[in-house]
């Protein structure tokens, strides 16, 4: 009796927080604050996924979107010298187009809900959960879909090779670590003892 009520309360709590954070993203004047709001929005969305029993999606949202994407945004915002005032300049010019798009999108959504013929099929009842879905995914990912897993690895390899090819430049005059040379150095090769008369220097 209590559990569904608690779930409902949690759902409305996280949803309200999500909407508030999402508004914060577009309303904040400081872009760094926008990104921080975005991170909070992602976090609330992840909580909603957990309520639905989709803990894998929740973790992916945390790891990929907060751990990588949002942090990248933060870096870009903080490290690149972007003039956000200049970016906002066209706001009033683009407002009519934006509003028109918004109206179209909203009316489409309303139509979708109102027209019985295009209504989405009701979701099938969730199967009895015997096993966390991370485990289930792991079971098929490394057996039935192992070949796709390997091929995705090739894609990552291409990305790595590409990043190196396009950015790595051989640089002159930097000191590299060369273990063999460093270890084989002898005291006589590199240390020289001189007698220095006081007050004269070398």
């Amino acid at each position: 009796m209590l559990a569904p009520l608690l779930t409902q309360i949690a759902f409305y709590l996280f949803s309200a927080a999500l909407l508030a954070m999402a508004s914060g993203v577009i309303l904040a004047r400081n872009p760094v604050h926008s990104v921080l709001f975005l991170i909070m929005a992602f976090f609330n969305a992840a909580c909603l996924f957990i309520l639905m029993g989709a803990e894998f999606l929740a973790m992916i949202l945390l790891i990929v979107y907060i751990g990588a994407v949002a942090v990248l945004f933060l870096f870009v915002v903080m490290m690149l010298d972007i003039d956000f005032v200049a970016l906002r300049e066209g706001f009033w010019n683009y407002l009519p187009i934006g509003l028109a798009l918004g109206v179209v999108l909203a009316s489409e959504l309303i139509l979708l809900a109102a027209l019985p013929t295009v209504a989405l099929a009701p979701a099938p009842p969730p199967p009895e959960i015997l096993q966390p879905n991370i485990e289930r995914l792991g079971e098929v990912l490394y057996t039935r879909y192992a070949h796709f897993f390997q091929m995705a690895g090739i894609i990552l390899l291409i990305a790595m090779v590409g990043a190196i090819v396009l950015t790595l430049r051989p640089r002159e005059g930097i000191r590299r670590q060369e273990a063999a040379r460093q270890v084989s150095r002898k005291r006589e090769d590199s240390v020289e003892i001189r007698k220095v008369q006081s007050g004269e220097g070398l």
């Binding site: 091929m151 090739i154 894609i155 291409i158 990305a159 090779v161 590409g162 090819v165 396009l166």
Partner: peptide, 10 residues
């Protein structure tokens, strides 16, 4: 498609 195109972008 992704394997093919990603290498081509580079």
């Amino acid at each position: 498609i992704e394997t093919q195109s990603l290498a081509l972008y580079v």
